Simulated assay, not measured.
Amino acid sequence: MRLNQATDYAFRMVLYLASLPEGTKITGAALAEKQNIPERFLLKIMRNLTAAGIMKSYRGVDGGFALQRSPEDITLFDVIEAVEGQTELQRCLHDISSCSRGCSGMCSIYNAFADIQRDLVTKLKAIDFAELARQESQLQAACGAAGDGPLKKAVSNEM
Score class of each variant (00 low, 15 high):
G85F: 02
A126Y: 01
G85R: 06
S100Q: 12
C143G: 15
D119M: 13
F113C: 06
L89W: 00
S108H: 08
F77H: 14
A130E: 12
G144M: 07
Y110P: 01
V121G: 01
A82W: 08
L132M: 08
V121L: 03
S97C: 05
T122E: 15
I74C: 12
L93H: 11
C103F: 08
S100V: 14
C143T: 08
P71G: 03
Q117W: 07
A130T: 00
K125A: 11
I116R: 06
E84I: 04
T87L: 14
F113Q: 04
S104H: 10
A126L: 02
M106V: 09
I96R: 12
S98H: 06
L139N: 03
A114H: 02
N111W: 05
A141C: 01
D128C: 05
D119W: 07
D128L: 08
I80N: 03
Q135M: 12
I109P: 00
I127H: 03
K123E: 14
F77G: 01
S98V: 03
Y110S: 02
C99F: 04
C99I: 07
C92I: 12
Q135E: 14
D78V: 10
A130N: 13
E136M: 09
R101V: 06
S97I: 05
V79C: 00
D78C: 00
A130K: 11
L120N: 05
H94R: 13
A130G: 05
L93R: 13
Q135H: 11
I116M: 06
S98T: 04
E81S: 10
S137C: 00
A126M: 05
Q86Y: 07
T75L: 05
Y110R: 03
I96Y: 07
L76T: 10
I127T: 09
L120K: 09
F129Q: 02
G144K: 07
C92L: 05
F77M: 06
V121M: 02
D128A: 10
I96N: 01
I96D: 01
Q117G: 06
L132N: 02
A141E: 13
G105I: 00
T122Q: 11
M106N: 11
Q138C: 02
L132C: 00
A145T: 10
A142Y: 09
R118K: 14
T87H: 04
Q86A: 12
G102H: 07
S108P: 03
C143S: 15
Q117Y: 10
D128N: 15
D73K: 13
L132I: 12
C99K: 12
A133F: 10
Q117F: 11
E72V: 04
D95W: 04
D119F: 00
F77R: 14
Q90K: 12
S137T: 12
F129T: 09
A112V: 12
S100F: 04
S137L: 14
N111S: 11
D95Y: 14
Q86E: 15
I80A: 02
C143D: 15
S108C: 00
F113M: 15
E72F: 13
R91S: 13
A126F: 02
I80L: 01
G144C: 07
D115P: 03
Q138T: 09
C107P: 07
L120A: 11
F77K: 10
R134W: 02
G105T: 12
S108V: 09
I109L: 11
A114N: 15
E131L: 13
M106Y: 07
A133D: 06
A133P: 06
R134E: 12
C143A: 15
Y110M: 01
E136A: 15
M106H: 10
